[in-house]
Simulated assay, not measured.
Amino acid sequence: MNQPRSVLVTGGNRGIGRAIAEAFLAQGDKVAVTTRNGGAPEGALELKADVTDAASIDAAFKEAEAVNGPVEILVANAGITADTLLLRMSEEDWSSVIDTNLTGSFHVAKRAAKGMLRLKRGRIIFISSVVGLLGSPGQVNYAASKAGLVGMARSLARELGSRNITANVVAPGFVNTDMTAVLTDEQKAEIKNQVPLGRYADPAEIAGAVTWLAADAAAYVTGAVIPVDGGLGMGH
């Protein structure tokens, strides 16, 4: 058994983030999760934090470092949607999604990189979406934020690679979570028809790709976008 590692997952209280936190806990790692509303999985260090606020993220990292040691694996997962068609999309719909999904990921990556550079090792994993590269009507803000993560990860891969720090992206397709539960049965059926595997993902299947990217087996993988989308985004 490897030494337990210090892992931090943003938005780790529900959905994909929670499944990721639970997968690292199951491996025996020391896991801290940030959440705005509480409800971290059992065994994880719960940190109340808002990714849009750099000072709040700094405080969360300090607490995680004090309890679990310097963060070796960062999973930037926190994300929101505010779906609406372009002409109805308000400035707030745009900026809230960009601030959380893209700028929030910048805040946590910047803070994590500080400690990783000192350690001379680290894994940064961004949770994007199939929509980031495929596009989706009514999701101009969300798709832009998720595509931005790819450019961010690839730039960090080049910038930090010489210090043994990798930066990768996992791009989930449609997953059974609270976020997709709001879709109508008609919408759900339509989506399943577009997915070659003909079903939604279980959050644990996304977590499997994340734990692999954090494992020794993926030490030579950086700047990659790993689709976990049932084949929905093929060719992108």
Rank of each mutant, 00 (worst) to 15 (best):
R154G: 13
E190Y: 12
I125V: 05
I124F: 01
V182S: 15
V108M: 02
A219L: 06
D185M: 04
L149I: 11
Y220H: 12
T177C: 09
V169C: 09
G208V: 02
S128P: 01
T184E: 04
D178N: 12
G231P: 11
G198V: 08
A217F: 09
T103V: 13
L183N: 10
K192C: 09
R154S: 14
K188L: 08
P196L: 12
V140L: 14
F126I: 00
T211M: 11
L197F: 14
V169Q: 02
M116D: 01
K188N: 10
K146W: 14
V221S: 13
M116L: 07
R123G: 01
F126S: 01
N176C: 03
S162G: 11
V108Q: 00
V170Y: 00
T180K: 05
T100W: 05
I98T: 11
G161C: 11
L117E: 05
E186I: 02
G233Q: 08
I127L: 13
A204W: 02
R121I: 00
L213Y: 08
A153G: 13
I165C: 03
I206R: 00
T184W: 08
I206W: 03
V130N: 03
R121C: 07
A215T: 00
R121F: 04
D229F: 05
P203A: 09
S129P: 02
R121N: 05
G151H: 14
A209C: 12
